Simulated assay, not measured.
Amino acid sequence: MKKIILLLTFIAAVGVSAQIGTATTVSNPDSKWTFGGYAGLGGAFGDGGGVSVYLSPRVGYKVTENLETGLASNVNWSNSKYYSSTMVGVGPFVNYYFSRSFFLSGMFQEYFINQKNKVDNLKYSGDEAALYLGGGYMQRLGERTYMQIGGMYNVLYSKQKSFLGGAFIPSIGIVYGL
């Protein structure tokens, strides 16, 4: 928590927009269960300002040494002078690892969305489904530590109907315990 407060203070001092995050997966070598997730914090400073918090915990089960499946959830909360939003998502995921160098990934999420435009007092509440397919490269950093670089594409994304920011999501993170 101290690191997050220190980082926020630094970002506020230089007056820039920032988004930070970390991905983590931890498992016991004798267990088939994995735990992890992603956390992000963003801010925009200046006229209107704002803050955004993103948490995405997950629990997985190693079906085989290279196949992992589980349940992922996420909460995204944003608030500024002009806009506020809360989005909660939940759904299954599956990852397949190729010799700990490459991975394929799939994840379904059902999002529940509440948004408010504070200027016009317009509100929206609804839900949206997303099916992300992707993959990437894994670089070994230690005995059980990897850096993952990749991306996912929401195959259900429709620019005209979607409240999600876009179809493609790049990702970079550190994974422990695979």
Rank of each mutant, 00 (worst) to 15 (best):
F10H: 11
G150F: 01
I174L: 10
G134W: 12
V90K: 10
Y38M: 01
F108S: 12
F168G: 14
F102E: 03
N79E: 07
V53L: 09
L67F: 15
V175G: 01
L71M: 13
S101H: 10
N117L: 04
Y153F: 01
L41G: 07
G142M: 02
V63E: 11
Q19A: 13
G46Y: 12
I113H: 07
G136P: 01
R100T: 00
S52A: 06
Y176Q: 02
Y54E: 02
G126P: 05
M1K: 05
Y157N: 03
L164D: 11
G166A: 00
M147Y: 02
R140I: 02
A44Y: 13
L7G: 11
G166R: 01
I174W: 10
E143A: 01
N95W: 01
W33V: 15
E110N: 10
D127V: 06
S99H: 12
D30T: 04
I113F: 09
L164N: 11
V88K: 04
R100P: 00
S78G: 12
Q109V: 09
G165I: 08
G36R: 10
A72F: 08
L156Y: 11
S105E: 14
Y137S: 15
S78V: 05
D127E: 12
G50Y: 01
G37I: 06
D120F: 11
Y157A: 01
L122K: 13
V51N: 14
L104F: 13
V94H: 05
G70M: 12
M138Q: 00
F98N: 07
A12N: 15
F102Y: 15
G150H: 08
G48W: 05
G36S: 09
G15N: 01
K116D: 02
Y82V: 05
I169C: 06
G42S: 10
G40I: 02
I11K: 05
D30F: 02
V53R: 09
T25C: 09
V26T: 03
I4R: 03
K81I: 12
E110V: 07
Y97N: 05
V88Y: 11
I4M: 13
Q109L: 15
F163W: 03
Y82Q: 13
Y54H: 08
W77Y: 14
E68L: 12
M1G: 12
V14C: 01
T145H: 06
S17L: 06
L6M: 08
V16H: 08
V175K: 13
S56N: 10
F103W: 01
Y96D: 05
Y97A: 03
K2T: 10
T34Y: 08
E128W: 01
V53S: 09
G177H: 04
F163N: 07
S17E: 08
Y82M: 03
L55P: 02
T25G: 14
S105G: 09
K161P: 07
F98I: 06
Q19T: 13
V94F: 12
E143T: 03
G173D: 04
T34S: 15
Y132D: 09
L67A: 07
V175F: 00
S125C: 07
S80W: 14
Y124H: 12
L55F: 15
L6N: 14
G173I: 02
K161D: 10
Q148T: 01
K161G: 04
A130M: 14
P170D: 03
S125K: 13
M107V: 04
K159H: 06
F108Q: 07
N114L: 03
